[in-house]
């Protein structure tokens, strides 16, 4: 047969699952270089975002399928060595990187994503830093840019000052909301789910940042009721393409809840290690990628 030209090969490869792509690096040097190229990584991400079959859910230590179309291969979750360090991990490629934030905080929720307008990868944290007075349990939303290549991004070399650190002004978004339960992506916008306590009744509010980085663009998109039963606070796990929102609860017997927006109904599943359950889009993006910023001379 005739050889397929490179742009046709790329068109085909950009639709494959990550596991197949990683294996096909062994086909030839040419294929390895195509699959490793930034061009293909971006092309593949673009296709993955709009493909329901490339949305997955990571459930550690679970071989059973708990959700249609999203089942995952699993392996041990690589945990960061210290409480202050965070680990950025791509479950599709199984590549991870540790970043030492050198910042003391608790109660953080995080989301890793790409901002399409500037092609940068960002880690967004909702944290309560120690030693900083925040009114009413308010949470700071912090953006960390994911920088540098594997050779110069390591726990020892990264200093907070060297990361771009952009706290959103407290009180603007979280006014009246006392519990940030999760960050995620809804309709391709950064979104936050907050528990709002009114007496004994907890309502979850879904907020969407319509324009990334512009705090005035936060818009409340819907309320979600608390599920019946003796369930404590619910934390956002992710959102599917099928109109489902995943929560985990912080109760002792960890449960995974799936809330269908259309039907306004919960279904619950029991999973082990629910703390680490997360939905994600299958991508080749490496935690070691990103525009290289100057990491200060030491």
């Amino acid at each position: 047969m005739q050889q397929l030209p490179e742009d046709v090969i790329e068109e085909i490869l950009s639709r494959l699952h990550v596991k197949d792509l990683m294996r096909f690096k062994s086909v030839s040097k040419k294929w390895n270089s195509i699959i490793s190229s930034q061009h293909l990584i971006n092309l593949h991400l673009k296709k993955s975002i709009s493909s329901p079959s490339h949305r997955r859910i990571f459930i550690p230590h679970s071989k059973s399928v708990v959700y249609k179309g999203l089942q995952d291969d699993t392996e041990e979750l690589p945990l960061p060595p210290g409480a202050i360090a965070i680990r950025i991990w791509n479950p599709a490629t199984r590549v991870s990187k540790t970043a030492d934030l050198k910042l003391k905080f608790d109660n953080f929720v995080s989301w890793f994503g790409r901002e399409s307008s500037d092609d940068e990868y960002k880690l967004i944290l909702g944290i309560r830093p120690h030693g900083k007075q925040l009114a009413n349990n308010h949470t700071l939303l912090v953006t960390l840019y994911v920088d540098g290549d594997s050779s110069n991004f390591s726990a020892q070399e990264i200093d907070l000052d060297q990361l771009v650190f952009k706290p959103y002004e407290e009180g603007t978004f979280f006014c009246g909301i006392n519990h940030l339960c999760g960050l995620g992506v809804v309709d391709r916008c950064l979104s936050a789910i907050c528990g709002n306590c009114e007496g004994f009744c907890v309502i979850y509010e879904v907020w969407i940042m319509k324009e990334y980085g512009i705090k005035e663009s936060w818009t409340k998109s819907m309320n979600i009721p608390h599920p019946a039963g003796n369930i404590q606070y619910m934390y956002l796990v992710g959102v599917s393409d099928y109109g489902d929102i995943f929560f985990r609860s912080s109760t002792e017997h960890v449960n995974l809840f799936v809330y269908n927006v259309g039907e306004k109904k919960y279904t619950a599943t029991l999973v082990s290690d629910g703390y680490f359950v997360k939905t994600y889009v299958e991508t080749l993006v490496s935690p070691n990628l990103g525009k290289k910023r100057t990491v200060g001379a030491t």
């Binding site: 047969m1 050889q3 085909i12 639709r15 494959l16 699952h17 197949d20 086909v27 040097k29 040419k30």
Partner: peptide, 23 residues
Amino acid sequence: IAQVMEKKSVGWVRRKFGIENDY
């Protein structure tokens, strides 16, 4: 084609795409 390639071996891809292994 992407669907057909799912779970296929490296050897299968080389044969079908007529690729010479240059490793």
